[in-house]
Design a protein around this nucleic acid. Structure first.
Lengths: 204, 204, 204, 204
DNA sequence: AATGAATGAGAGTTCATTCAT
DNA sequence: GATGAATGAACTCTCATTCAT
């Protein structure tokens, strides 16, 4: 394979145009939706010719799939890395929630695309995103089970239900922020929700 | 104007073809997604000619919009009717959660369409679904605020956050059931989640 | 054939609906053009059902053809009747010109339809209008030839050219009045143009 | 941007396909009329794919509009250029009339399209052709007024009426030639009509 | 590697006409 | 005679993808 001076492949991940196409696709799709985003619009935003897209990606689908894949991969990597030093169950839940909410700020366009296209993608582009969601859910379930075995969480709740509740709650908060323009502080909101989950909203 | 036996006009809501088209659209879109569902496929499934769709609906968009509108309308009506006799805050939350989860069983195709198309719709077809979501959230917020003023809920949590957490949690549980085939008992799962929300998962 | 009380056929020329459909067609086509005028729009304007049109006419084309035919027929009849008592060549030319210009006022919609659809019709609906135009031209040519044999018109001009010149001139004046809103007095303008044709615009 | 040998851009006016599409459109529309000429028929005649039309023109309308615009533009340019050296009022009128009649020979299909579609276009596609007609009329009116001020034309005739009479006469002669197959010599017919207009058909 | 002109299948929608009532 | 719901062929236009340059 041909290499550039810095040793990276000229046309694989990490090349200039590859990244520009991904960014352009995310931006255009965030604005107009996948099916209202012609390849030509993505190419124009990336500053390349239409045909060039097909040197870097197999198809239009492939561009979107790659963008979403990358996002999930980064999320998972960021979280597992942090977990090497952050080991408390409550702290881990808070951290996951916080990173989830922060995607709003980190890359707003990508966050929008995740909200609007992932479930579609899950069913029509491929089932790849179910896999990613499953991994997120697994992560949380493990924490819950660990907490239960350590006696800091109730034994009579389903780890699966708790995991879905946490994911669903965070995703809806994110979604509502993206679409209504409401802003929040990711860290404190994450803490607030985790507290709710752990302690309930009934006064003691 | 021609009337059917029950006195309703032959076209328009309630007519045979009108309902068949709506059902066909929901089924086809649930299977393939809105943008991968040609009008011709919907017509074929409904057993009518392509052009007939346009006697009952203004456009392809209009078919989907009507289906979703109707679903939300029924949800809201069912809940508010029940609230006339079911007045406890906890019981109301449980009822909303239960109805939400039951949509799985009531009309599975429509539930799938809601999961896959509503957020898309919210942004690209119109803003009508944001309106519907907002009404759901409002309903829950009012219950929370009432509970707070009655002293049965903590004062230090945001009613908005609680409402989004409940909605997100239920929607994610529904979604996961629809896409992974997991089954649950709507009533007991609803109770379990509401209990979690009210009492937390930390042992006392 | 079924007859109405006054002895006219219920659905032939002269029946109420027959006339209403013709009028409606002319009005709608004047407004939107033949190809932008659905049969349903004509039916609505006439206050009948779409299908009813086909009880009175063979096709959409047939409606327009009939309207135009009738107009030409009336023109020809009006002119030939008047010629029984109006016999001078100059006077006859003035009369033809005047009637031509007056169509603006008599039935403005029909005049518009003649201007916009007749040449189209001539080629695409049928060649019937060429026939009508030919009859108009013949009428004028005969007058010219008579004038020439009587020695009141120059012998060295082609009767055909004169006839087309007169028709073209009147039709363009009519057209310009219809489309730009310019108004004129039909009688005096007709006289002015015929004078120009007979005496030229060069001072003596 | 890619350039052809003559330095013009590959697409846009002057490119091979652009001209072929225009010619094909004019030919097909001359034969069948605008509304009976599917884009696919134009594409087939031009030897390109249907979609290719839309690389060169915004819409089907745009193709026709461009063809007509170009024709009018050429007419106007040809006439005004010649007027730099041809200054007599009678000679100018004769020249205009001659060029008008010659369109028959120069591009018969385009002449047919002008006859059949321009008035339609004037009302339904846009008002652009009224503008072109107005320019023609203006040109003639100026000549007439100049002739009047020079004393070679009568003062008591309306320059507007004369202009419309000349235009209408020429257009009708052209039209009749196109649709009946009659042939004439453009130059001598033009001279004959202008003579008629200037001197009348009454013997002195 | 990069281009962008060209393709053509397929989309949503309209509407002249028919026919059961 | 009158209706108008239903049909389905035909329309204009879009766009993912290819390939000669």
């Amino acid at each position: 394979m041909k290499k550039t001076e810095n040793g990276r492949p000229a046309s694989g991940p990490g090349s200039d145009k590859y990244e520009r196409i991904l960014d352009a696709a995310v931006a255009v799709i965030a604005e107009n939706g996948y099916f209202n985003s012609p390849v030509s619009a993505i190419a124009a935003r990336a500053g390349v010719a239409d045909g060039t897209i097909y040197l870097y990606f197999k198809s239009k689908d492939d561009v979107l799939r790659t963008a979403i894949d990358t996002m999930f991969e980064r999320f998972h990597q960021q979280v597992t890395e942090r977990f090497e030093t952050l080991t408390g169950a409550r702290e881990q839940l808070e951290y996951i929630a916080q990173v989830h909410l922060e995607s709003h700020t980190v890359n707003r366009n990508l966050a929008i695309v995740m909200q609007t296209e992932v479930r579609q993608s899950a069913r029509f582009i491929s089932e790849f995103s179910l896999h990613h969601l499953a991994r997120y859910i697994s992560l949380v379930r493990e924490i819950i089970r660990r907490g239960q075995s350590e006696g800091i969480f109730r034994q009579d709740v389903s780890d699966g239900v708790v995991a879905h509740v946490l994911f669903g709650a965070m995703d809806e908060l994110l979604s509502s922020a993206l679409f209504t323009g409401r802003v929040y502080d990711a860290k404190s909101t994450a803490a607030q929700v985790v507290d709710m989950l752990l302690n309930g909203i009934t006064p003691r």
